[in-house]
Measured scan of single mutants.
Amino acid sequence: MAMNGTITTWFKDKGFGFIKDENGDNRYFHVIKVANPDLIKKDAAVTFEPTTNNKGLSAYAVKVVPL
C-alpha cells in the first residue's frame, strides 16, 4: 500500500537518501528506485511503497510529487 513522505536527506554523489514517512519513521531509498530522479531534493514530497531490507525500513517505487 502506497505511503506519503518527505525526503529528509539526499546524498546525490552516493545515490541514496532517506524519507520520513507518514508515521514519522525514516526509510532508506536508492536513486534506481525513483521514477523521476531529476526531481529529487531535500524536503520534496514523495509517494512510495514501503518495504524492509536487511538494514531496516526502506522504500521502492518512489515518485517525487512535482510542485
Rank of each mutant, 00 (worst) to 15 (best):
Y60M: 14
P37Y: 05
F16V: 04
F11D: 06
V31C: 10
L57Y: 06
F16P: 00
V65Y: 10
V65C: 11
K33W: 15
F29A: 00
K42R: 11
I32F: 14
F29K: 00
T47D: 03
N23K: 11
A61M: 11
N36E: 06
P50W: 03
N26D: 10
V62T: 01
N23F: 10
E22V: 07
D38H: 13
I7R: 01
K20W: 08
F11E: 05
I32N: 15
I19N: 00
N54I: 11
A35L: 15
G56S: 06
G17T: 01
E49H: 15
T9Q: 15
A59K: 01
K14L: 12
G56T: 07
L67C: 13
F18W: 10
K33L: 13
N23R: 10
F16K: 01
N54S: 14
M1G: 13
E22Q: 10
R27D: 00
T52S: 13
K33Y: 15
E22H: 06
D38C: 13
F16S: 03
R27S: 02
K12F: 07
N23A: 08
N4Q: 12
E49A: 12
H30P: 06
I32M: 15
W10Y: 08
Y28W: 11
G24L: 04
N36S: 05
M3L: 13
L67Q: 13
N4R: 14
I19L: 08
S58W: 06
T9V: 14
D21A: 04
K41M: 10
N4Y: 11
V34E: 03
T6F: 11
T47V: 12
A2Y: 12
A59F: 03
R27N: 02
N4K: 14
W10L: 04
G56K: 08
G24S: 05
M3V: 06
P66F: 12
N4V: 11
T51I: 14
A61P: 02
K33C: 15
I19D: 00
F18M: 05
P50F: 03
P37M: 05
A44K: 05
F48M: 02
W10R: 00
G5V: 02
M1T: 15
K41F: 08
P50Q: 04
L57F: 06
K63P: 01
A45W: 12
F48C: 02
T9E: 11
V46Q: 01
L39W: 10
Y28T: 03
I32L: 15
V62W: 01
L67V: 13
V34Y: 03
N54Y: 10
F29Y: 03
N26S: 13
H30C: 10
G17Q: 00
K42L: 13
K12C: 10
K42M: 10
H30K: 06
V34T: 06
T9I: 14
K55F: 14
A44P: 00
A59T: 06
Y60D: 15
A61I: 05
